[in-house]
Computed example of a mutant assay.
Amino acid sequence: MTQQAAALQTYNNELVKCIEELCSKRDELNRQIKQEEEEKERLQHDIRVLSEKLSRVNESLTQRLAARSTFDRTIAETEAAYTKILESSQSLLSVLKQEAGNLSKATENKYTKTFQSRYTDT
């Protein structure tokens, strides 16, 4: 019986050793789980913060794009109006030159006729 008791004691010691190893492995696994849960929480927090920042940037970007569109439209309208002003100015200048030429011819013809009549009558 002593031999059986010794065997039982050996089995018991090995069983306790195995249970302690399993507990140790479980504790290590719990430590790793806790670390990963903490990392998960940090990542989720970072995601929330980044999502909020992304939302603010998207809002700002939308407003800036709308403002740029307004600038583009205003610039295009102003350039078109300015082009019309330039074309009108060019037309006005052309008409003015033509009228000035006509006036000059009319004045020259009167002056020449008056001059000729004064000197040819005498």
Rank of each mutant, 00 (worst) to 15 (best):
R56C: 06
A106C: 02
A100I: 14
L29R: 05
S89R: 11
A100R: 08
S60K: 08
K97F: 12
N102Q: 14
V57K: 01
L92H: 07
N109W: 05
E20K: 02
R118I: 15
E39V: 03
E52G: 03
M1W: 03
E108L: 09
A67M: 10
S94N: 13
R118V: 10
E41D: 05
N102D: 05
T120E: 13
L92Y: 08
D46K: 01
E38Y: 02
Y119N: 12
L61M: 03
K105M: 12
E14K: 05
Q44K: 07
S104T: 14
K105W: 05
V49S: 01
N30M: 12
R48C: 00
T114Y: 09
R64C: 03
L54F: 06
A76D: 07
I85H: 04
E39Y: 02
F115K: 02
L29H: 04
L93R: 06
A81S: 07
I33C: 01
A67G: 05
Q116H: 09
A106D: 13
N12E: 14
L15A: 08
S91N: 06
I47G: 00
R118Q: 13
K97V: 14
K40Y: 07
F115H: 04
E108Y: 09
R68G: 09
E36D: 09
V49D: 00
L43W: 04
I85S: 05
V57D: 02
S88T: 08
I19E: 13
N30I: 14
E38F: 01
Q44S: 10
S91W: 02
R56N: 10
F71L: 12
E52H: 07
I75C: 04
E39Q: 11
L65N: 07
T78L: 15
S117I: 13
T112P: 00
K25I: 06
T74K: 06
A5V: 14
T78D: 01
S104A: 11
E108D: 11
T112C: 07
A80I: 01
S55Y: 07
A106P: 00
T120R: 03
F115Y: 06
E77Q: 04
Y119I: 15
E108A: 15
T74N: 08
E77H: 04
Q98S: 13
I47E: 00
Q116V: 12
L22W: 02
Q90C: 10
L65D: 13
L65A: 10
K40P: 00
N102R: 06
L8Q: 12
T120V: 10
S60F: 04
D121V: 05
R31Q: 14
L92R: 04
S69N: 09
T2S: 08
Q35L: 15
I19K: 08
D72L: 11
Y119M: 11
C23K: 13
L29F: 06
Q98V: 09
K34D: 15
Y82E: 11
K97T: 12
T70P: 00
A76T: 06
N30Y: 06
S51E: 11
L43S: 05
L86K: 08
Q63G: 04
T122C: 02
Q116R: 05
R118H: 09
R118P: 00
T74P: 00
Y111I: 13
K53M: 07
L54S: 10
A6K: 05
L93G: 15
I75A: 09
A66V: 03
